[in-house]
Design a protein around this nucleic acid. Structure first.
Length: 864
RNA sequence: GCCCCCGUGGCGGAAUGGUAGACGCUGAGGACUUAAAAUCCUUUGCCUGAAAAGGCGUGCCGGUUCGAGUCCGGCCGGGGGCACCA
């Protein structure tokens, strides 16, 4: 038990206790425990080639403190770690070196694992998972099949960002300032066949259920904004060319319909060609060509300078029969609403700007209420505020909200519109043309074969088949899900990791994997190059060459941790029932929208399937802040301000690193690294060492099992127990540490110390600096691991004082202080002041107007 | 442009509307030492003052209150998110 070093030799002590914990399985999370459970989760890392930087241990230390604290509080704690190991860098490395991305990935994982282990976190390493492991990705594929079955996955030609340099498709979020996020290469638009997940079907619930979670308000707001719900109406405008039918627009302001002076179609709108008159054709075609060549970025760059062309056609306003010109302009986008708008320049900034530029009429139909708080009566346009309708036959005088409802209803009654809700949230582009990702467990088969499979009821098929038409061969393909028993579908080896230049992944070149005979009875496949077997029901199929994006594995990993080795299910109902979902989830704010939204979506699908018991995956969420470099800038290799945790562990020990990371400031704050500050906490740990042990390495002689301590120290001890406990619960670790410093300073000054006092300090310190705490605990005769000892409880009887310090103020200014017995009333306190010549001197020659007494705190005397 | 968060000593930061600056770093002085490191003690917001004490002070301006770093309004500065979403 324990090392024998006389000094604080952290390089001996830390590995010793890490081995001890590992040997004793100190952090094993038992699923059959009778204790209440606590599940605390870190956002698992992508094991990059550059290894850990100090930002990683910041969040991990926080959760480790919570985990160790909750164990001491009697909880069965699940505190796992794993690897979000699919990712573009590994694939790029493979392209460069020709080695399989799995080998590079495993090297990186080993490095991360070793680094994380040296930090002494109390993870249950038996539950380590790796998203690229076939035993894991099998269930990622399985969950995809559940989405597929429910009609939440489909295939569509989508204009996607194509990066010629990376030879891959990028998601919007992988593009920064019009360049690829990785490498900074130029990107362009290309239409490619993509898998898309119908997250929009869950938009309403994803929005509504934000009310149920304990998350940072800013994160909830970001998700709300991302989902972007807006209530309005779809309205039908007739067309002068009646044979073309109606023009459908979406608007949030049906109440302004009498102010419509023109219509705008997005350049990609399907009616543009038909509505363009011959005289306008050249200009419109030219405009559309230019618009299609523009990236989204260029379009937004030109936001200040709106442009458009007139088609020559007119629409008919369903409210008043007015003839309205139809324009094409790229400030209207095809992807939102109907891709067409009614323009009301008097009450919309964008329409106003456009109308001014092209000298289109502007009709005001909302007027601010004169004399009201909001309304000044001024008619400056565009007017976006509250008000009543004007120039709106039959509605004039109505407040706009009422008019909005009424006009929508009236148009609906005439079959000219209906109230609708629109979302900014788009369906989720769920495929990548890459090698290093989960293959889709789907086969493309012919229409006839699909009909046969459907008739035989052999697979769980969606209500509507997922199909696509191959442009070259004009064949329609049907997506057949693989049966559960043939999962996992693993990646085949490839000759080259370079994408096939056509936009398909390298998998398109692996003919024997790609083109197969498939036995619908057994789910078996053999290469199509072999003869079709005689027995069984073999059909021809082509595998999907797309792979899933990196998000897939991280959408459900928190569930796998509850039962990571299960081969029958993604997790057993029993494990899911006991562990449920994380009680606390800690990770960076950079995942505030996408990862958290995607995971919530999948979780809700699993909830709808009856597979999980909660509608939300992450009840409580916390974002740790970013640690900046010494220079106050973001840490980056190019700036040369990166702090490597390995170096700190070697020079100061991991307990010091952990403590310092928590002492820097509030966990959520962005804060710079200060190499001198670390000496302060290191000194603190040295002081604790010397407090416990003498120079000989034996117990400090001033510690006695039963000795008299000053009452003030006893009180401070219990105050510290209370504050440290509360601060851990609220993740305010910096103030918890400073309180322990206050206590240890007082203990250092005390001539005698009770053994129990020292032990309690060690217990409070144990979640923060576990190695040192274990060592000193053992040296002072403690039994077993300090982490297993029940957490100390503050004795409230020890917290009360008999005497209170009262601040004396005159007109709110601090003028002195005095002591009174507990329970002293205002008169008593005032009398004390009057009897004290020094205090009462402040009242000389003054008229006392009022006295305010806050018992135990303030006596404020208001004088004239 | 819109939405959100944040501005406190030389530095990181602390403060249920109630002593602003806890705790730590840095600096200064001292003890120990042949010397240095380490350690320990004192001190460290600014101004006046020998001291006692007093005045000023939480980005700026105003307000509410007996009392404001904290609440309200307006500005200035920094950070994050969204970005023609009709």
């Amino acid at each position: 038990m324990a090392t024998h070093c006389k000094d604080y030799e952290f390089l001996q002590i830390e590995p010793y206790w890490q081995t001890y914990w590992s040997d004793h399985q100190s952090f094993r999370a038992a699923s059959d425990s009778t204790k209440p459970k606590y599940y605390v989760l870190d956002m698992f890392p992508y094991p990059s080639g550059s290894g850990l930087h100090v930002g990683h241990p910041e969040g991990y230390t926080a959760t480790d403190i919570i985990a160790r604290y909750k164990r001491a509080k009697g909880f069965e704690v699940l505190h796992p770690i794993g690897w979000d190991a699919f990712g573009l860098p590994a694939e790029q490395h493979a392209v460069k070196t020709g080695t399989h991305p799995a080998s590079n990935t495993q090297n990186n994982i080993s490095k991360f694992r070793q680094q994380i282990k040296s930090l002494g976190f109390s993870y249950d390493w038996d539950r380590e998972i790796d998203t690229t492991d076939p035993r894991y990705l099998r269930w990622t594929q399985w969950i995809f099949l559940q989405l597929f079955k429910r009609g939440l996955a489909y295939v569509d030609e989508r204009p996607v960002w194509w990066c010629p340099e990376l030879r891959t498709v990028l998601a919007n979020e992988e593009i920064v300032d019009g360049k690829s996020e990785v490498g900074g290469f130029p990107v362009e638009r290309r239409n490619l066949r993509q898998w898309v997940l119908r997250i929009t079907a869950y938009a309403e619930r994803l929005l509504a259920d934000l009310k149920e979670v304990d998350w940072p308000e800013s994160t909830k707001r970001m998700q709300e904004a991302w989902i972007g719900r807006s209530e309005g109406a779809e309205l039908l405008f007739g067309l002068e060319a009646a044979n073309l039918g109606d023009l459908k627009v979406f608007t949030t302001r049906p109440d302004t319909i009498f102010g419509v002076t023109y219509m705008v179609l997005a350049p990609e709108h399907p009616l543009v060609a038909a509505l363009t008159l011959p005289a306008m054709r050249a200009a419109v075609d030219d405009y559309r060509r230019k618009a299609s060549g523009k990236s989204d970025l260029e379009r937004t760059d030109l936001a200040k300078d709106k442009s458009g062309v007139f088609t020559g056609s007119f629409a008919i306003n369903p409210a008043n029969g007015a003839r309205v010109p139809i324009w094409v302009a790229d400030y209207v986008v095809m992807g939102y609403g109907t891709g067409a708008i009614m323009a009301v320049p008097a009450h919309d900034e964008r329409d106003y700007e456009f109308a001014v530029r092209y000298q289109l009429p502007i009709i005001q139909v909302i007027e601010p209420e004169v004399g009201s708080v909001n309304g000044t009566g001024s008619h400056e346009l565009p007017f976006l505020g509250e008000g009543n309708l004007v120039h709106s036959d039959g509605y004039t005088g109505l407040p706009w909200q009422i008019a909005k409802k009424k006009i929508t209803e009236d148009l609906a009654a005439k079959q000219r519109g209906r109230a609708t809700v629109n979302y900014k949230l788009r369906d989720w582009l769920f495929s990548r043309q890459r090698y290093w990702g989960e293959p889709f467990p789907v086969l493309w088969i012919s229409s006839e074969d699909y009909q046969r499979c459907a008739a035989a009821g052999l697979s769980a098929l969606p209500a509507t088949p997922v199909t696509y038409r191959d442009a070259a061969s004009q064949t329609e393909w049907f997506a057949l899900p693989l049966p559960e028993q043939s999962l996992p579908l693993v990646l085949p080896d490839v000759q080259s990791y370079l994408p096939s230049g056509s936009g398909e992944s390298p998998l398109a070149n692996v003919t024997d994997w790609l083109e197969v005979w498939y036995d619908v009875k057994t789910g078996a496949t053999i290469p199509a190059s072999q003869p079709r077997p005689d027995s069984g029901e073999w059909i021809r199929g082509r595998r999907e060459t797309n792979t899933m994006p990196q998000w897939a594995g991280s959408c459900w990993y928190y569930l796998r941790f509850t039962d990571p080795k299960n081969e029958q299910a993604f997790a057993s109902p029993r494990a899911l029932e006991y562990w449920g979902v994380p009680d606390l989830y800690v990770g960076g704010a950079e995942h505030a929208v996408l990862h958290l939204l995607y995971a919530r979506f999948w979780h809700k699908v699993l909830f709808d399937e009856g597979l999980v018991g909660q509608s939300e995956p992450f009840r409580k969420l916390f974002h740790q802040g970013i640690i900046l470099g010494e220079d106050g800038e973001k840490m980056s290799k190019s700036r040369g301000n990166v702090v490597n945790p390995d170096a700190i562990i070697a020079s100061h020990g991991t307990d010091t690193l952990r403590l310092y990371l928590m002492f820097l400031g509030p966990l959520e704050a962005m804060k710079p690294w200060n190499p001198r500050g670390i000496e302060g906490v290191h000194r603190f740990l040295h002081r604790v060492w010397r407090l416990a042990l003498g120079a000989d390495g034996e117990g400090n002689p001033k510690i006695k099992p039963d000795t008299q301590e000053p009452a003030t120290l006893e009180k401070l001890l219990h105050e510290t127990i209370k504050k440290v406990s509360e601060d851990i619960e609220t993740l305010r670790f910096n103030t918890a540490i400073s309180q322990m410093m206050v206590l240890s300073n007082a203990m250092q000054d005390a001539p005698q110390l009770r053994t129990s006092t020292v032990r309690t300090l060690l217990q409070l310190l144990a979640p923060f600096a576990p190695h040192l705490a274990e060592e000193l605990w053992a040296r002072l005769g403690g039994q077993g691991s300090i982490g297993a000892v029940p957490w100390p409880v503050a004795d409230t009887a020890k917290l009360v004082s008999t005497e209170l310090k009262i601040i004396m103020q005159v007109n709110g200014k601090h003028r002195g202080e005095f002591f009174v017995p507990v329970g002293t009333l205002q008169d008593g306190a005032f009398q004390t002041v009057q009897e004290d010549p020094k205090l009462s001197s402040h009242l000389a020659n003054k008229t006392i107007k009022r006295v305010i007494y806050v018992p135990g705190k303030i006596l404020n005397i208001v004088v004239e």
